[in-house]
């Protein structure tokens, strides 16, 4: 894959990358930093991409790693409560009602939710991305569905997704 193909791949995946980054970091400025770092890191690690058909999955995995690194760094600087207050204030911007509700889920639920229901990754793929078991991902998807169902039904009149 040359630079031009890499660039095309990145731009084609930009929306997906943003939604994944948003599900972890929630703050747009952090998302921008994480996506930038991930793109630079991915380009320098192109030799680790085994099949070009899986470019988006590979790049998403790099992005997830980058996002969690930033998240850990943020939490080490301020208390968790302060961090969450800051993040909730940041997410009340231009988001639509439904996506906003997704972002309100706890991190362990919203990340698999976005990866599966919005980005279409399979349970097995998500488990590999997050270095955990398929059973754990299924648990989180189950709980995120239930939580979201309650909120959407009550507030926005949605039935299912």
């Amino acid at each position: 894959m040359d630079k031009e193909e890499f660039t095309k791949g990145v731009l084609a995946a930009e929306k997906s990358l943003y939604y994944v980054a948003k599900s972890i970091l929630r703050n747009d400025e952090d998302c921008a930093d994480a996506m930038q770092n991930a793109i630079l890191s991915a380009y320098s690690s192109l030799h680790t991409l085994r099949q070009e058909a899986y470019f988006k999955t590979w790049l998403t995995r790099i992005l997830i790693n980058e996002c969690y690194k930033m998240l850990r760094d943020r939490k080490s600087e301020i208390s968790y409560e302060e961090y969450m207050e800051h993040e909730e204030a940041e997410t009340s911007g231009a988001d639509t009602g439904v996506f906003d509700e997704v972002l309100k889920l706890a991190e362990q639920y919203r990340v698999p939710f976005v990866l599966h229901y919005i980005e279409g990754y399979q349970v097995k793929e998500i488990a590999e991305m997050l270095h955990t078991t398929e059973g754990s991902i299924k648990t989180r998807l189950y709980r995120s569905r239930n939580l979201l169902k309650k909120r959407l039904k009550g507030e926005l009149g949605y039935e299912a997704y």
Partner: peptide
């Protein structure tokens, strides 16, 4: 339902 990528994020990309 999904938002557009904000301009500043796109600029970073």
């Amino acid at each position: 339902e999904l938002p557009d990528v904000p301009e500043k994020v796109h600029a970073s990309v």
